[in-house]
Simulated assay, not measured.
Amino acid sequence: MPVTITAGLDGTDHSLAAADWAAHEAARRGTALRLVYAWVWGPGDTASVGDRDAEERMVRAVLSDARSRVAAAHPALDVSTEVVVGDPVSVLVDEAARAQTLVLGSRGYGTLAGYLVGSVSLHVLRRTARPVVMVRETQPAAPAPLPSGEVVVGVQGAEAAGGPVLDFAFAAAAERDVPLRAVYAWEVPPVLIWSPGSMWVAERQGGLEPVHRQILSDALAPWREKYPRVEVAEHLGTGPASEVLLSRAEGAQLLVVGRRTHEPGVRRLGSVTHAALHHARCAVAVVPHA
C-alpha cells in the first residue's frame, strides 16, 4: 500500500507551489512526502547550462531548496528527495503508481527545450491509473497558508464507474472537515428528438429537473452513508457541464473531476476535465475511473 504523497519538481514556481500543496496534504494525512525531479540532460537544449555536472548540481539544488522550504513549514514531516534520470512522463507515471497521490504544477518549462511542463502533465494524466492533483498557484516567496474553502466535485450520474471520483471527493472533504459541493449539470434536449409520449411522461413527473435531481441524489446516496459526517450541498444546473462546474468552484480549495479509462487504446481527459485544468483557480484532482 502506497504511503507517500509525491510532488514532481521542475524548477518553476508552479512546481514549487505543487510541493507546498503536497506538503500540506502529507502533513494532514500523516504520510511521508517524496519530492522528485525527472531529469534528462541534453547538451544541445537551450535550457541546458551546457555542462552535465553543473546542471545536475542545479537540479539537486532545486530539490534541496524545496525540501528546506517544506521542512520549515512542517518540521515533523518525513521528506525525501530523488533525482530520477529518464523521460519525465514515464518517470512521473511510475511515481504515480507508487504514491497515494501525485501532485504536479500546471505550468512552466522543463529542462527539455520547447517541452512544456503542461504537456508533460497532460501526458501523465492520460496514462496514469492513480489520482493526480494539479496546482497552478504560485507562491515563490514562502509556502502558502493552508487552503480554505469547500471541496467541489463534478457528478456525472449514478453509474458505479464514477465511484472512485466521489469516494476521493468525500474523503477529501472529511479529511479537511469542510463541506462538499456536488455539482450535476444537464441540458434540455431539443424538443424535436422527444416524442409526444416521452414529453407527457416527463410532465407527469413534474418536468425534467426532478428527474435529474433524483439522478444526483441516487449518485450521492452510497457516499453519504459511507461518510455521514460530511456536509453535502447538491447543486443542479442547466447548461454545458464545464461552465456549470466552474461557476460553482469559485472559492473552493479543491475541485475533483474524473477521467474515463474504459476505452482501450484511447487516452482522453474529456472536455470538462480539460476546462477544469485550464480555468479553475484552485487545485484540481483528476481521478481515473472505469
Rank of each mutant, 00 (worst) to 15 (best):
A71P: 03
G163E: 09
A22P: 01
R248L: 15
Y115E: 11
T4C: 12
L246G: 01
R52T: 05
Y37T: 13
A99F: 04
A182L: 02
L255Q: 07
D218H: 06
Q156C: 13
A54E: 14
T31P: 01
G118M: 06
E82Y: 04
P190N: 12
M1N: 10
A17Y: 02
R107W: 06
L236E: 14
D78R: 02
W194G: 12
T111V: 07
K226Q: 12
V244A: 10
T4A: 14
R28C: 08
R267Q: 07
V135M: 10
G237M: 09
V93N: 00
G265Y: 05
D20A: 01
W39A: 05
E250P: 06
H274G: 06
E203S: 15
G44Y: 03
K226V: 12
T4H: 10
W223K: 03
F170W: 02
H289C: 10
A160E: 14
R34T: 01
A144L: 12
D65Q: 09
L208G: 11
V272E: 04
S217C: 07
P190A: 13
I193N: 13
H235D: 14
V165Y: 02
E187Y: 09
V59H: 07
T6N: 09
V85W: 08
V257K: 00
S64Q: 11
G50I: 03
A169D: 08
L102G: 01
R224V: 05
A144S: 12
R127F: 00
R213L: 12
V257M: 05
H24G: 12
E150L: 05
A7M: 02
Y109R: 15
W186S: 05
M199K: 10
S148L: 13
W186L: 04
L255G: 09
V284Y: 01
V151K: 09
A185D: 10
R28G: 02
L245S: 09
L112F: 03
G86F: 02
F170S: 01
H14M: 09
A290G: 05
A161D: 13
G270P: 03
W41V: 04
L112Y: 09
E187A: 13
S80N: 11
E231F: 15
D177R: 11
E263I: 09
V286Q: 02
